[in-house]
Amino acid sequence: MPEITWEAPFCGEGNSCFRIGTDTDGNAYIAVNGQEDHYLTDTTDALRALITDIKAGKADHLL
């Protein structure tokens, strides 16, 4: 398992809390808060685009 540095949880309305993490190779990770051993990984730019779309209301149903 990679060495992931997790940021503080981001919590929207209700129970939709997730965390963003990065590793030393420049990969980005996203996981449901409390379940960081089950994560999605992609480039930092791809996950940044996903989060931007979620915050813009384009994909809030995914959380």
Rank of each mutant, 00 (worst) to 15 (best):
L62G: 02
F10C: 08
A28H: 00
T41K: 09
C11D: 04
A28M: 02
A8I: 11
G26K: 00
K55A: 10
D42M: 15
L63W: 10
D37W: 06
I54H: 09
I54C: 08
P9T: 11
A31F: 05
G26A: 02
L62P: 00
A49C: 15
E3R: 11
K55S: 12
Y39Q: 15
P2D: 13
A59E: 07
Y39H: 07
A56K: 01
I4M: 05
D23C: 10
R19Q: 06
T22S: 00
T43D: 12
Y29V: 03
D53L: 03
D42W: 15
D45H: 14
P9N: 09
G14A: 12
T22K: 01
I54L: 07
P9G: 08
M1H: 12
A56E: 00
D60E: 05
G34T: 08
R48K: 15
G26E: 00
D60L: 05
L63I: 03
A46H: 15
T24A: 03
C11W: 07
A31H: 03
W6P: 01
Y39W: 13
I54N: 06
T43Y: 06
I30E: 05
D60A: 15
E7G: 07
A59P: 00
T24C: 04
T43M: 14
A46Q: 13
F10Q: 10
T24S: 06
I51D: 01
L62N: 04
T44G: 08
I54P: 00
G57N: 02
I20W: 03
G57M: 04
G57S: 06
I51R: 04
D60R: 09
G12E: 05
E13A: 13
P2I: 13
P9W: 00
Y39C: 13
L62S: 10
E3K: 04
D45S: 14
R19D: 11
D37M: 06
I51K: 12
D53V: 02
L62M: 04
A28S: 09
A56L: 08
T52A: 11
D37E: 12
A31L: 03
E36M: 11
T52R: 10
T22N: 05
A56C: 11
P9S: 13
